[in-house]
Design a protein around this nucleic acid. Structure first.
Lengths: 117, 117
DNA sequence: GACAATGTGTACTGAGTAGTATACACTACA
DNA sequence: TGTAGTGTATACTACTCAGTACACATTGTC
């Protein structure tokens, strides 16, 4: 069920249709891996690559890095670091918000950003 | 600078002063590892153990599991899962809140819990 | 029909993860 | 003085991570 690979492949082929530089070889070159490796990743024969490569892929494919990392089963290291710096606080926040609807969470965050707290 | 080990050791020895079952051997037995392994962990000779063992340690030592995991350089898998389920949302939330003072964040969470959103 | 570029199969690697198993020296105490 | 318990040193292991290196067959094109 490695949806990561097929997702990448789909995006890459879509781009390749109008831009030949999105071949396995050339894209692999740009993100700094061997073509055979990218090929195996796309077919799910190998687990998703490192955070660094996933972010490079996101940048090349015009995708949201956090979404791509999530598909890869990972969480961005800067988010992890933020949590590790105040573990009690962020554990409480995330567990509290995880079942809330998006609009509630976003509305709240907007309030915070606007200095209401 | 593996503060995890010394933190564990200090807590264990504090408890051991009034409860002999907090020897390396017995505690190791209760969390399901070999004594030599726990010893090496406490001295920082080996990196912190798996999430599962860290949580067992937290439970035995009466510490907050999220704090102990943070010292071990990890983030609890349930939090990671929550983030991976809605990566854009939680990435935004965490990046927005990471520089906010605790009281602001907590006040906000309280509002959410009280159904204000 | 040569040549380039495409995607993929196969074999391998070095580092890290997460420990086990056993033996050892030291202290407590009865 | 034996024996029970303490912490630790040493050696080893199976597994996963994150890829590389290279050869191969196929397709497009000039």
């Amino acid at each position: 069920m490695s949806s990561f690979g097929s997702y990448i492949r789909e995006r890459r082929e879509r781009l390749k249709a109008s831009d030949a530089t999105f071949s396995v070889r050339q894209l692999a070159g740009r993100i700094g891996v061997e073509p055979s490796f990218l090929s195996k990743v796309e077919r799910g024969e190998t687990p998703p690559p490192s955070e660094e490569k996933v972010k490079a892929l996101a940048s090349e494919l015009g995708e949201d890095p956090d979404v791509l990392l999530a598909l890869a089963g990972k969480v961005s290291s800067d988010l992890q670091e933020a949590i590790r710096k105040r573990p009690e606080l962020f554990a409480a926040v995330i567990r509290e918000l995880k079942d809330m609807p998006d609009h509630a969470v976003l509305g709240m965050v907007r309030e915070v950003r606007d200095g209401k707290w």
